[in-house]
Computed example of a mutant assay.
Amino acid sequence: MNVGIVGSTGYGGVELYRLLSKHPHVHECILYSSSLEGTPYVDQYPHLAGLSQEMVKPIVIGEMQELDFVFLAVPSGVSKELSPKLVGKKAKVIDLSGDLRLKDPSQYEEWYKGESAPEDILNEAVYGLTEMNRNAVKEAKLIANPGCFPTATLLGLAPLLHHGLIDPGSIIIDAKTGLSGAGRKASLASHFSETQENLRIYKVHEHQHIPEIEQQLKEWNVETGPISFTTHLIPMTRGIMATMYAQLTDDIATGALHDIYSEFYHHQPFIRVRPSGQFPGTKEVFGTNFCDLSVKADPRTNRVTVVAVIDNLIKGAAGQAVQNMNVMLGIDETTGLHHDPIYP
C-alpha cells in the first residue's frame, strides 16, 4: 500500500511519517510539501539521519489521486482546496486540519474566518473519533480527523452524556496544552523567553474547537447547551490535559462512575480508565495513542470532575489518523501503534 503525506514538514507530518514508515501494511510513504519540495527530508529533521532517504516532493494532484491513502497534515484553509480534487478517486483521504469537521458552513466561516469547504465534501466527510464512530469510519472514503482538544474532551465526556448522568447545559472545560500544538512555525507566542516559567490563557471564549466539541455533544444529547471552554499554554513540548466539570443529575458515587467508564470503554484498546482515586499526567501517555481518563464525584456540590490526557501529536492528530486508516482497511486498529509511553 502506498500513502502520501501532504504537509510532511510540520510536526503532525513528521509524526505521521514516524508511524507510517514502520507500518507493516505501508510499502511506500511519499512526502509532499508546497514550500520545501526537492529537498531531502532529513534536512528538515536531522534526527532521521540514516533512517530516511525520502525526498520532499511537490504537490501533484494526479499522482496523489492514485495512492491508497492521502493524509492532509496541513493548516486550516488548505484542505478545503485539496479535498475536492482527491475525493472520488482511488485515494482515501484523512484530513488532519479543521476544514471538514464542522457540518454547518456558517460555523466554519464564523470560527475559522474563511470560506467553508463545499457542502458536498462536508457531507461526505466522516468525523473520525474512532471509539465513538467506528462503524461509519469503516465505510468512509473521507475522514475529518478530530482536533486535539476535542479528542480529549469528547472521550472524557462521552460516558456521562450517553448515560444521561449530567445536566447537558452545565459543562465547563479547562484545557492545557504543550507548545507543539502551535505548530513548527516560529512566533512570539512560542518563543522560549515568552513561554518558559509562564502559564498563559489564550483564545478565551474564541477557540475554534468550541463548535466542534458542541457539534458532537449535541449528537449525543440534543439538549446540550453552549459549553464554557478555556485553553492554556504551558511550558512543555507535548501533551494535553482536559479537566471537565458538570452537574450530576442524581446522586452517584465515584465508584459507580468508575464502573460506568470502565464498562463503556471496555473494548477500546487505546482508552485507559485509571483506578479510582488515581489521576493521570501528560507524561504517562507521551509518544502514544492512549487517552487516559479519571472520574470523581463531589458529593458536597453534586458535580463530577473528569480528567483526560493525550499526546496532542499522536492521539490528538497522527496516531488517531493511523487508527482511522486501520479501521478503514479492516485490520486490527492497533496495527503500527504499539508504543509504550516514553518516561520520564
Rank of each mutant, 00 (worst) to 15 (best):
M1W: 03
M1E: 08
M1C: 08
V3D: 06
Y11L: 15
G13W: 11
V14A: 00
V14Y: 02
E15T: 15
L19K: 04
L20E: 03
H23R: 07
I30N: 09
I30Q: 08
L36Q: 13
L36V: 08
V42Q: 12
V42T: 15
D43S: 14
D43C: 05
Y45T: 10
E54V: 02
E54L: 06
M55A: 11
M55N: 07
I61N: 07
I61G: 09
Q65T: 01
F69C: 04
F69T: 03
V70H: 02
V70F: 04
V70Y: 04
V74A: 11
P75Y: 03
P75V: 05
G77L: 06
S79F: 09
E81I: 12
E81M: 13
S83T: 15
S83C: 15
K85V: 06
L86C: 04
V87D: 08
A91M: 09
V93S: 02
D95T: 12
L96S: 01
S97N: 03
L102N: 11
K103H: 11
D104I: 14
D104M: 09
S116T: 08
S116A: 13
A117G: 03
D120H: 15
N123V: 05
N123K: 15
A136V: 01
V137R: 01
A140M: 10
A144S: 14
P146D: 11
A152I: 02
A152V: 02
T153A: 08
L154E: 01
L154T: 03
G156P: 09
P159S: 05
P159G: 06
G164Q: 04
I166A: 13
D167C: 10
G169H: 00
G169E: 07
A175L: 07
K176E: 11
T177L: 10
S180I: 09
A189M: 14
H191L: 13
E194W: 12
E197D: 10
V204T: 15
I210Y: 01
Q216V: 15
Q216A: 07
L217S: 12
W220P: 00
W220T: 02
N221E: 12
G225S: 15
I227P: 00
S228A: 11
F229T: 01
T230S: 07
P235T: 14
P235K: 11
M236K: 03
T237V: 12
T237W: 08
T243L: 03
M244T: 11
I252Y: 00
A253W: 00
G255Q: 01
G255K: 06
L257P: 07
H258Q: 10
S262E: 14
E263R: 10
F264P: 00
H267T: 06
Q268M: 13
P269N: 06
P269L: 09
F279Y: 10
F286D: 13
G287N: 14
T288F: 09
F290C: 03
C291W: 07
D292K: 12
D292V: 02
P299T: 14
T301G: 00
N302L: 13
R303G: 08
R303M: 12
V304L: 05
I310E: 00
D311S: 05
D311V: 06
D311F: 09
A321H: 10
V322T: 02
Q323H: 15
M325A: 07
L329H: 03
G330A: 10
G336Y: 14
L337Y: 04
H338G: 04
P341I: 05
I342K: 13
